[in-house]
């Protein structure tokens, strides 16, 4: 099958295990996805399967999108990504892929876009300590000195400063799958994942055998 899958973050809640232990979980709407395009070594130089997730209204889609989707006899999609197929796995154009690909999979790597924080100061962006809030101090949040004097006469490259924070592609590795609900296409993973509610995610399978080496 495929190296991963596509999904959408729904939000967080809790679930109980059989022993009555509460686990914090994030709900992911995962699939169903359609195969939009199949890339082969002969034609494209590498193997890949292009998956599409979440239908887009035809009114919103542009003509190239509608045309590309028509080749796979599918609706235009909001989120399209290439994934690596396993060796020997066969796909058909327009084929619908569901959560079944996570059978016997215990962990996933989740790739998402973090929430945008805008232009952030050094305390928020780099966890600087800042200055004292009281005792006559007026230096509450600025970064302080950013370098020496004449020697070297410049600011060191890569110096942590204020700037744009968030809206960044982030991979969280080895997240436990708590539960799979195939009827509703829901994936329950343990803990938090990047992004706002409704943001799109790539879920890469983790081969558990390779962990700990």
């Amino acid at each position: 099958m495929l190296s991963g899958f596509l999904g959408k973050k729904i939000g967080m809640t809790q679930i109980y295990t059989g022993d009555g232990i509460i686990i914090p979980v994030t709900l992911i709407q995962a699939g169903p996805c359609s195969v939009m395009q199949i890339k082969t070594v002969e034609k494209d130089g590498y193997n890949a399967v292009k998956l599409g997730f979440d239908d887009k209204k035809r009114k919103v889609a542009n003509k190239p999108e509608i045309g590309a989707a028509a080749k796979a006899a599918a609706e235009p999609k909001r989120f399209i990504r290439e994934l690596t197929p396993d060796k020997g796995a066969e796909f058909k154009l327009g084929q619908s892929i569901t959560l079944d690909i996570f059978n016997n999979v215990k962990m996933v790597d989740v790739i998402g876009i973090t929430k945008g924080k805008g232009y952030a100061g050094v305390m928020k962006r780099w966890n600087f300590k800042g200055g004292a809030q009281t005792h006559g101090s007026t230096r509450h949040r600025p970064p302080g000195s950013i370098g020496s004097n004449t020697d070297p006469g410049r600011v060191v490259r890569g110096k942590k400063m204020a700037g744009h924070l968030g809206c960044e592609r982030v991979t969280i590795k080895n997240i436990d799958i708590v539960k799979i609900d195939k009827d509703r296409n829901l994936l329950f993973v343990k803990g938090a994942i990047p992004g706002h509610k409704g943001s799109y995610l790539i879920l890469n399978k983790v081969n558990v055998k390779t962990i700990g080496k």
Binding site: I10, M12, I15, Y16, L27, Q29, L186
Partner: peptide, 11 residues
């Protein structure tokens, strides 16, 4: 909301 449904099932 799906989250409400999931929570209601467990109540």
């Amino acid at each position: 909301n799906i989250i409400d449904v999931i929570e209601k099932e467990q109540m």
